[in-house]
Amino acid sequence: MTIPKINEKQKRRDRYSWIVWGIIIIVIYGWCFSDMKFSHIQESAGTVSKSIFMGLIHPDWAYIYNGSGEDLVSQLIMTLAIAFLGTIIAAIISVPFAFFASRSKNSKYNVTSKVGTFLLTAIRAFPEIVLAIMFIKAVGPGSFAGVMALGIHSIGMLGKLFSESIEEMNHSSEYSIVAAGGSKPQVFALSTWPTILPALISYTLYSFEISVRSASILGLVGAGGIGAPMIMALNTRNWPRVGIILFGIVVMVMVIDGCSGYIRKKLV
């Protein structure tokens, strides 16, 4: 007869914990609503959204390409170039970093590994826009600042993903090279590298997908790419142009996601 009693107790505790959680949630939302200084929605909201919508269905087709280098296609290519450079640079830097981090995990260098992990977390916590603003101060406005910002931001992500995949990799083929008399560099070249490479490429592509999205907003702060004409068109209320740029970004991101997803599926 003791068992049902315990169940009863457990049940009651469960019910109490539900009530406690419910109260916590209600307090959080109550706080959000009561304390939130809601701004008024501007009266022109209706007309502006109508204009944007009209702009979207009557986009400024002439802007797509006009050879000036300021047109949609050139700016989208610039955006892709920023994302591409940022990702490649980050990937190249992250590889040795990740190998070092995962090697030191089980050794006396454990402290370095912890410091490294903390640094990567810190880098990831910085929104790329903040990095872009800082790099604009360092190298002046333009795409270069964008490349640097995305590069650093991607190191935070790729460093983590790379070192995790190295820690989880299957080491069995390394033993056979060691057993045949291979030196450490040979073990790396013949076994570790070919085994880990597909995972590294897959993560790099994934990071590129994210970087393309980020690159499309860098221009909002002056770090190059499609964001710059976008903010200009918004400020001058040039809705047909906003429409075509929006359209361009959506198509670009979807195409890149599609291609990258296809390659990643083939790699596995």
């Binding site: 069995s172 083929s173 033993y175 056979s176 057993a179 076994s191 070919p194 085994t195 490479l197 597909p198």
Partner: peptide
């Protein structure tokens, strides 16, 4: 020469 239960070839 060493031969393993799990073959230990480099799959790729």
């Amino acid at each position: 020469g060493m031969i393993f239960q799990s073959f230990n070839l480099v799959n790729r």
